[in-house]
Computed example of a mutant assay.
Amino acid sequence: MKQLEGFGKFLESLRGKMSLREAAHKSGLSHAYIRDLELERNRSTNEKINPSPVTLKKLSDAYNISYTDLMAKAGYLENEQELMSGQAELAEQEQVAMSDAMYIEVTSKEIIFHTRLGQINKSVNSLLDFSLFLDQLDEQGFKKMDTDLFVNLNFVQKYVEREGKLYFDPLGIGKYVVIAAIRQKKYHDLLIRSVAANTGKALEFHYDRNTGTTDAGFFPLKFPG
């Protein structure tokens, strides 16, 4: 494992003007630990520390940097040829499964693609395999809706806000997933717009003078005949 020289300084540069506490809030890591990583040592024991792949994933999300790039700079992906080969193999194996998946569950051992016809299980063989997979999700329209749940917003057709449920049929009688409250708050507007786009309905906003809030509803799109 050959880490980029000055990796701690590199992490600090990624944080930029963001405060340690803000970085901690975005990543789910403690501000003290983030600072230790930037200094490349545990300030309590003065021992050198290296971030785990899980930690790097949290930082990549918080700093909006490619997880694969961060893994490479941390020394987990040393062979560039291996990386390119892995990218090609991953694209070939998962292209169909990912495009057909309504949602994906991720465990430490496998990736489960849930499609309308059933599910496809794929083993997680390496950190390279997993990191490349995560990098592709956002490009394909997936958003992380819980710790191990990624939902393809292109397939969501009904959003029940009060229950945090996302359905993949317009009537809300078929398969659904329940999303985490924090993710629901983060993606609320995006979910409403996605449902509108997927069901061919336009958004209609209603302003409540009593509460000072705006609610979004749907009405069918009309085309000149």
Rank of each mutant, 00 (worst) to 15 (best):
T107A: 12
K58S: 00
V124I: 15
L137Y: 06
T107E: 11
L153M: 08
A97G: 10
A74L: 03
A74P: 09
I111R: 03
R43C: 11
G86D: 05
V151D: 04
N152K: 05
Q136F: 07
D138L: 14
L83D: 03
D135C: 06
L127S: 14
R41Y: 14
N125I: 15
R116V: 08
Q157I: 01
S85I: 03
F155M: 05
D100A: 12
K73P: 00
E139R: 15
I120L: 10
R116F: 13
D61P: 01
I49M: 04
S85E: 12
T107N: 11
Q81F: 06
K122N: 06
E80M: 13
E163D: 15
M84N: 00
Y76Q: 01
L59G: 01
I65F: 05
V106Q: 05
L77P: 02
D146S: 14
V106H: 05
L117I: 10
E47I: 15
N64D: 13
L153I: 07
E94D: 12
S85T: 08
L56M: 01
L132F: 08
T45D: 01
N46E: 15
F130M: 11
Q93T: 14
G75V: 00
L77E: 00
Q136L: 13
V151S: 02
H114G: 08
D138M: 14
D69V: 09
P53S: 04
A74N: 00
F133A: 05
L137H: 04
T68R: 03
S85P: 00
G86H: 02
V124M: 03
D69W: 02
K144V: 07
S123Q: 15
I120P: 01
Q157D: 02
V106L: 10
A91K: 14
Q157H: 01
K144Y: 08
E40Q: 11
F113D: 04
K165D: 08
V160E: 12
N50H: 15
L83Q: 11
E89A: 08
G75E: 00
E78F: 00
N64Y: 08
D138T: 14
L83F: 11
H114T: 12
I104K: 02
A72V: 10
N121C: 13
V151N: 03
K165L: 10
K122F: 07
Q136C: 14
L90G: 02
L59S: 02
N64I: 06
K57G: 08
V54W: 13
L128N: 00
I112W: 02
D129Y: 12
T147S: 15
L56A: 07
A91Q: 14
K58R: 12
L153F: 05
S123A: 15
D61T: 08
K122A: 12
V124E: 07
L149W: 06
F130Q: 10
L59K: 02
T55G: 04
S85V: 01
I120C: 07
N64P: 13
H114Y: 12
V96M: 10
S52Q: 07
